[in-house]
Amino acid sequence: MSARRGKLWSRTVFLLILVTVAGVVLLPILYFLTISFASNYEAYQFPAKILPTFSYPARLRYNADTENYTLLLKKGADFEAVKTTSDASDFSLYCKSQLNVLISPPAVQTLFDRAKASDQAVPIKLRKDFFRNYVVFFILAEGTMRALFNSLKAAGWTILISLVLGGVTGYILARYKFRFSTTFSTSLLVVRMFPAVALSLPLVVYIMRMNLYDTPFALAIVYSVPNIALTAWITSSIFKGISVELEEAAMVFGATRLKTLRTITLPLAFPAIVASSLYAFLAAWNDSITALIMTNDNPTLALLVYRTVGSSTIPNLPAAGAVVLLIPSLVFTFIIKNYINQLWGKVAL
């Protein structure tokens, strides 16, 4: 009986911890997502909403004495007057810019007429253009698509360079014992200790001489520097775990060294390769500082978001940009996640 109660206790505590951790991780993300869908009006409201809204509960009142109309939005239990105008197109513009509501002046006029016919404030429905911020972000941040492609190119090159150089280093560290091999592998990590700026500033001179300035490839070179070391570490530990006898068996049974690498070693190291490419991708994708130094007319998406943050006083547009930035890396991570714990026959090796 007491054992059962003990189990219940531990389950409860476990669940509480789980919920807390999930809350700490998920709530900010949710809030961030909500902000990215918020209109300017909503972004200034306090307390902020946790979930995004799709429409406003609103009323329209005709003021007979001044011959104009007042828009009232629900705030708490009451309604707050937010806009008073007699001009339909002025009203329409306000809706668009402050509320993310698209409503044409003739449609506004119809609402005006309805309000005029009633002696009370009439309830009206204002439906939000849900993805307005994203549309604005793509319009406002000029060349977003190009920046997206630049980011993808830089990330692709970073993955390639890191995997080839880091993978080879990792294989050598795992398979061959030479003097100072441990010193060498430790010193690889020193490279990672340098801040990106410290690396990119001197490198920019060489990049310029090589006529690579302002290209995604040049960015990839800088991103690869710390990533080669990381890839070497990740892959060498996996290569060490792959028994040499597996490779020898392939060679005894008729495979060349290259064939052995291709059909035995690399497939077995696949999880490490995938994990390393994820790191390389994220490093390239999330960087804006190096891109700020190394690019001019060809910014990456992260740099573009960074610039939008600088030029905006309301958080909703940058939030939309950040979500745009987040989606590809989320997609990439989720695709790749399945391969990180690659199991053959669903049994851990």
Partner: peptide, 10 residues
């Protein structure tokens, strides 16, 4: 060859 660890490719 038959290896000590069998060297069966996993």
């Amino acid at each position: 060859m038959i290896f000590q660890s069998y060297a069966v490719w996993p």
